[in-house]
């Protein structure tokens, strides 16, 4: 078995090559109760920074998505302290200075682009900060659609911006106020409220376990 040496929080371990950082940590004996979630690159819980021997660059990535390399120095960042003021979406307006008034530290951005370099999702994070600054809410929502809130940009930001909270608010505002309403959704909601599925639900609720299992197996599945 090929092995590599990795340094987890300063201590060296021999681990099989080809493991992800997360699996390597478990192989080394760490039991992960924080900093570990979906193991599929979606939840953003396993933010990790590392350096490679002989390379000045500080890399940032998700532990569940990154393969170990020989001579890797690893530290996990299971949680990023970030500031999010309380707000009520229904009291906000999707307009120019809304993001800035709740997150005024956006104005501290120096356009260094360090956030973008840190993003494991390869988002254009600085462009999103700039769009937030100028009040382009749909632009922010678009640019940050794939953000997993891992907090790596936030930890690297010299302006101390709490990025993912800004993005979340922008997407909420965009969804609530700026995205065109879908008439077919409203129509279906009205149908549900009008009792269109009542009889079928009642029938399901009245079924015994075996009958329910049989019905489940026989259900229509989209191809």
């Amino acid at each position: 078995m090929d092995e590599v040496t990795v340094f987890i929080m300063g201590k060296g371990y021999r681990v099989p090559a080809g493991l992800t950082i997360m699996k390597a940590m478990e192989y080394a004996g760490y039991r992960l109760t924080r900093g570990c979630g979906c193991r599929g690159g979606y939840c953003g819980a396993c933010a990790t920074v590392y350096r490679l021997r002989g390379d000045y660059k500080l890399y940032a990535d998700l532990a569940c998505q990154t393969t170990v390399q020989d001579g890797m120095y690893i530290a996990q960042l299971p949680f990023t302290p970030a500031e999010r003021p309380a707000y009520r979406l229904e009291e906000l307006r999707a307009e120019g200075q809304t993001l800035l008034s709740l997150f005024p530290e956006l104005a501290r951005c120096v356009a260094c682009n360090t956030c973008t370099k840190a993003c494991p999702q390869k988002l254009e994070v600085m462009d999103a900060v700039q769009a937030s600054l100028r009040g382009d809410i749909p632009g922010v929502a678009e640019l940050t659609f794939d953000c997993v809130s891992c907090g790596l940009c936030t930890m690297r930001c010299p302006a101390e911006i709490s990025h993912h909270h800004v993005w979340q608010l922008a997407r909420r505002l965009n969804g609530a106020y700026l995205t065109p309403r879908a008439p077919h959704v409203a129509q279906r909601v009205a149908e549900v409220e009008g009792g269109k599925f009542r009889a079928e639900l009642d029938r399901l609720m009245a079924m015994g376990k075996e009958e329910l299992v049989a019905a489940y197996k026989a259900r229509d599945i989209e191809p």
């Binding site: 951005c109 356009a111 682009n113 700039q130 600054l133 100028r134 010299p158």
Partner: peptide, 24 residues
């Protein structure tokens, strides 16, 4: 893809980072 100019020019001789935005 323009970014904020910084609005105030940095007058400190060693503050290179504040020039990154305008130069970008």
């Amino acid at each position: 893809r323009w970014n904020c100019c910084g609005t105030v020019y940095s007058l400190a001789q060693d503050d290179l980072m504040r020039h990154v935005g305008p130069v970008r």
